[in-house]
């Protein structure tokens, strides 16, 4: 069936809970553009111009429904003084922890994201993408959510130790750290929107139900998520990077437009909670996907579309990134199966 909406119109229909011509399909390809351009990942990620042209090349090649304006969210840590370590086969990591221990978070400060060279490159990538596809194809930005950013700076162990420590010691550190990361996240997300992003994904790996209970989520994470989303000047998608089913109802009330599911989350159950309130994205196992044939991908897409009826739903992976090892044919199967879907 031929598409009758542009990718942006399709996304807008979906997030406003109207019936699109077909569901949007977002294979998030952050690294594949390097291969298209014959560059190393370090060269590709380090220059906004390279990254943007890689995204445009992938859009032309696959004909999916979005471009991603941010090469990787680890770059957010550079604003806190981190250096990056590059890999031949994946996104960079921190060279070392920025904070030696949790109590160092008392002195945490962040630079203005617009003044950080690495982040300026991302804004440049967004500018280029906007010049080419703005108003037609959704341009997606991303940032690490305020609750999870401290764990990148001090390590997950120190962050969890802090969360479960004596409240008298914990609360002042937590309050300062979250205020700094919240303000940074808002400023960085809004800078991306000014540069051309249509929506922002907030990656919140420490806040998923895999990591913390619903009560802990309500105590520690939800308030700062709500504050952050209320001040970002565009739609926000929340990504738990783990199971999110137990908190979909809470995220739906924050004003978030979408939520990315983990592959463990029951898609039909999630859809029951989310329908008419928040758009679901996912929930294909992006690690196992490296071994999927195109036929297996077709089955997975068919399963997801059957569970959701193609409403309030965007076809995509958990994570949500497609690893480098997934074949072009398998990625095409995700896109073509979605394009051929006819909702009831």
């Amino acid at each position: 069936m031929a598409d009758t909406l542009t990718p942006l119109e399709r996304l807008l229909a979906t997030v406003t809970h109207k019936k699109p011509d077909r569901p949007p399909v977002f294979p998030v390809m952050l690294m594949q553009g390097a291969r298209e351009l014959g560059l190393s990942l370090e060269e590709y990620f380090s220059k906004g111009e390279h990254y943007a042209h890689g995204q445009l090349r992938l859009l032309e090649k696959f004909g999916h429904d979005c471009v991603i304006g941010v090469p990787h969210v680890v770059e957010d840590t550079v604003a806190f003084g981190a250096t990056l370590m590059y890999f031949r086969n994946g996104p960079p990591s921190l060279g070392k922890m920025v904070l030696r221990e949790a109590k160092d978070a008392r002195k945490l400060t962040a630079a203005d994201p617009k003044k950080i060279p690495a982040l300026q490159e991302t804004l440049h990538a967004l500018n280029i993408l906007a010049q080419n596809v703005k108003g037609r194809v959704p341009i997606i930005g991303a940032a690490v959510a305020p609750f999870s950013l401290p764990s990148l700076l001090m390590g997950a162990e120190a962050w969890v130790d802090l969360l479960f420590s004596d409240p008298a010691t914990r609360d002042p550190i937590l309050a300062h750290a979250l205020a700094v990361t919240r303000d940074f996240c808002i400023a960085w997300a809004n800078a991306q929107i000014e540069a051309g992003a249509d929506a922002i994904v907030l990656a919140d790996g420490m806040a998923s139900a895999t990591m913390i209970t619903r009560d802990e989520f309500m105590q520690f994470a939800l308030p700062v998520i709500r504050e952050t989303i209320s001040q970002i000047k565009g739609p926000v998608v929340w990504e738990g990077v783990g199971s999110v089913l137990p908190v979909i109802d809470l995220i739906a009330e924050t004003g978030a437009a979408g939520i990315i599911l983990d592959y463990h989350d029951d898609l039909a159950a999630a859809h029951q909670v989310a329908a008419g309130k928040i758009t679901l994205i996912g929930n294909f196992n992006n690690i196992a996907m490296r071994r999927w044939s195109p036929e297996k991908m077709k089955d997975e897409v068919a399963r997801a579309l059957a569970a959701t009826g193609g409403m309030d739903y965007i076809v995509g992976a958990q994570g949500p990134e497609i690893p480098l090892g997934v074949s072009d044919e398998t990625i095409r199967a995700m896109i073509e199966t979605t394009k051929n879907f006819q909702s009831a």
């Binding site: 969890v160 130790d161 969360l163 139900a209 990591m211 913390i212 209970t213």
Partner: peptide
């Protein structure tokens, strides 16, 4: 049990 709680129990 969540991973964070497991971790604190182990501590």
């Amino acid at each position: 049990i969540t991973l964070s709680r497991m971790y604190i129990m182990a501590r």
